[in-house]
């Protein structure tokens, strides 16, 4: 059998182009293997060959999704691959979104097997895991070896058209698909077994897990904006110069509450961003580009809004655990409600 032809997608960082300063790098295709492709190459042995690698900047992809996808599609198609792999993206949010989007596009539009890999809390995971095979990885590149060890065999199986086992067996994220199989025991017996285990406090595994829908109904709109108290919350990491609370540049473990009384405008002298993972220059030069204190202050003076709340709240939304973000926001909301805030503007980078 001929070697399976593979095209691999990676971001500007893994492509060796550069870090955040190169995140707006437009899609490029190179012949052969690059970066993490080396590990896949080793794992594929003689069975498959990475014929081309697509490199694209994470910000470019996310800010120009349609153009980026179209350009990347043409690049991939030219190589007539048998298989497509993207990532692994670990917990890099923009990379995860790009990897998921391209994998889904290739699978649907080229009709070839495709897979990607990322950490389960990567925003790209929730967006694309139902449509594509997505191997669960660790949250950082420390997990590269482990990720490739799971992705490479699954990729080969997909390319050979072999039967794919359950998410637990193969290591991919659940896609919410049920598959019929012949069980040894009938349903009533299995249900009773499960119930007995549950009553005994033992671990049991449901055969039909309920989907977790966590949606919150929108609150009613503000009726009287001219008398409303508006608060700013951000995951863009804007902090007073020097980052007094030492909010981490990624995987933040805390948030800050900062007084902006008497401040009409944030400047590079007074404030900066603590956010890592994207180029901080624009936010550092003018933090109003992330939280619009200047404009809201103007509108307060003009009577367009009642009041800009005296404090703003800030954390860094870069690889931050969902459980932490939830905890921060619960605490922040409780204070905002107690302070009589009517509505919130939340900005994200």
């Amino acid at each position: 059998m001929a070697k399976i032809k593979v095209v691999h997608y990676i971001n500007q960082f893994y492509g060796g182009i550069g870090g955040e300063e190169k995140a707006d790098y437009k899609p490029e295709v190179i012949e052969g293997v690059k970066g993490p492709g080396m590990a896949f190459k080793a794992a594929f042995k003689d069975e498959a060959e990475i014929v081309a690698t697509i490199i694209c900047g994470d910000s470019y992809f996310n800010e120009n999704m349609d153009e980026a996808k179209a350009a990347i599609f043409e690049m991939i198609k030219k190589y007539e691959p048998d298989l497509f792999i993207a990532g692994p993206a670990f917990n890099a949010g923009r990379y995860g979104v790009a990897a998921g989007a391209v994998t889904e596009m290739v699978q649907t539009e080229l009709g070839i097997p495709a897979l990607t890999g990322m950490y389960e809390e990567n925003p790209g995971a929730d967006m694309y895991k139902k449509g594509v095979y997505m191997v669960a990885t660790k949250n950082s590149a420390v997990g590269m070896k482990d990720a490739v060890a799971k992705m490479a065999p699954l990729a080969l199986k997909l390319a050979r058209g072999e039967e794919i086992g359950s998410p637990e067996e193969e290591g991919y994220l659940e896609r919410g698909i049920r598959k019929n199989y012949f069980a040894e025991k009938r349903g009533s017996e299995r249900a009773v077994d499960m119930l007995v285990k549950k009553l005994a406090g033992e671990e049991y595994k449901t055969e039909y897990s309920m989907p977790t829908f966590d949606r919150v109904e929108p609150n009613p709109p503000i009726k009287d904006m001219a008398n409303a108290k508006i608060a700013i919350v951000t995951s863009g990491g804007i902090v007073p110069k020097g980052n007094p609370d030492h909010i981490e540049s990624s995987s933040a473990s805390k948030y800050g509450k900062y007084d902006i009384e008497g401040i009409d405008n944030l400047t590079e002298e007074t404030h900066e961003t603590a956010h890592g993972g994207h180029d901080p220059v624009y936010a550092n030069n003018d933090p109003d580009r992330v939280i619009p204190v200047d404009v809201l202050r103007d509108m307060e003076k003009e009577g367009k809004i009642g009041e800009l709340h005296r404090y703003y709240y800030s954390t860094v939304g870069n690889g931050t655990a969902v459980a932490n973000a939830k905890k921060f926001a619960e605490a922040i909301s409780a204070e905002l409600v107690a302070d009589g805030v009517d509505a919130v503007i939340l900005t994200s980078t």
Binding site: D214, R215, V216, E217, P218, N219, P220, P221, I222, V233, A325, K326, A329, E330, I332, S333, A334, L336, V337, V341, D342, A343, V344, I345, L346
Partner: peptide, 10 residues
Amino acid sequence: KEIERAGLPV
């Protein structure tokens, strides 16, 4: 979502 859940339009 947590801010919305707390009753504040966001």
